[in-house]
């Protein structure tokens, strides 16, 4: 399912969060939204399911103008995992938390086992979410939203507070959802986590779009360093090394970097 923003403006009181923003996320793609704190990233996610309505312009989810439907109706198409998991969790067991959304929108439990097993939640199904660590609460929040099996899934800073191992579980879940042709939208500062998953990048600055396009195109830009610095981001390690080594293709994972290196040269290993 596609999501389109058509000249969307949104203000919190007198402070503009988005300024005449237009873009279209194609069905089945994975998009990473990046930008400084306060650049409008979370606002975009909240506009997609009508929690916020545009001050001007329109947001179209599938073929539906979000101004014409209730959030409860739009939630059959779009699920959002909030930035703060504690805003989302309320059930007295992890199991009830994971099934609440599914049972309410009636999408069926097709993804439930996949989510539970990928995020390794089975040992804590009978636990109270509030007896868990913050990181585990975040995994439960992600799982409860992913299990809803909506065509569009958005995650706001899904790795905040997670350890490296937990990030790997979330990355694996997102890869599995990608293979099921879900439309994924991820807001994250954690480029090392998000870049290997995402095909498209939407870069925001002060409520305006600086770039929207393929990640390869983004990291092939001549002035990429300046663009990233001006947007408060650091140049992630793998694309930076690929560029420094003069590889023809950008790399977003260690393996891609090594494949690029192997193609370019013969690596002699010091087995010691």
């Amino acid at each position: 399912m596609r999501v389109a923003f058509d000249s969307v403006t949104f203000s919190y009181g007198e402070y503009p969060a988005l300024k005449t923003v237009s873009f279209e996320i194609e069905s089945g793609t994975t998009t990473l939204i990046v930008g400084r704190n306060g650049s409008g990233k979370s606002t975009i996610l909240k506009l997609m399911n009508g929690i916020l309505k545009p001050t001007a312009g329109r947001v179209v989810l599938g073929e539906t103008d979000t101004r014409t439907k209730k959030v409860s109706e739009l939630s059959r198409s779009y699920a959002l995992c909030f930035q703060n998991p504690d805003d989302q969790l309320f059930a007295d067991t992890v199991s009830r938390e994971l099934t609440f959304g599914i049972d309410n929108i009636g999408t069926g439990r097709n993804l439930l086992d996949l989510v539970i097993d990928t995020l390794e939640l089975r040992p804590i199904l009978s636990s109270n979410p509030y007896s868990l660590s913050y990181a585990m609460r975040r995994l439960v929040a992600i799982g409860s939203v992913a299990a809803m099996d909506t065509p569009v899934l958005a995650l706001d800073e899904p790795t905040a507070g997670l350890s490296f191992r937990e990030k790997e579980k979330v990355a694996l879940l997102l890869q599995k959802l990608k293979s099921r042709k879900k439309t994924l939208v991820i807001v994250s500062h954690d480029l090392n986590f998000a870049l290997p998953i995402c095909q498209k990048i939407l870069l925001l600055s002060k409520g305006s779009i600086l770039f929207f396009g393929n990640r390869g195109e983004f990291f092939s830009k001549e002035d990429i360093r300046q663009v990233m610095r001006a947007s408060g981001m650091t140049f992630p390690i793998y694309p930076r090394m690929a560029r420094a080594l003069g590889l023809t293709q950008p790399a977003f994972t260690c393996n891609e970097l090594l494949i690029g290196l192997k193609a370019a040269t013969t690596i002699k290993l010091d087995s010691n």
């Binding site: 704190n37 930035q83 800073e157 905040a160 507070g161 500062h189 981001m233 650091t234």
Partner: peptide, 13 residues
Amino acid sequence: DEPLSQLDPESTS
């Protein structure tokens, strides 16, 4: 306690 969790890279710096 995890003071960098929601900060952008510039603010982390």
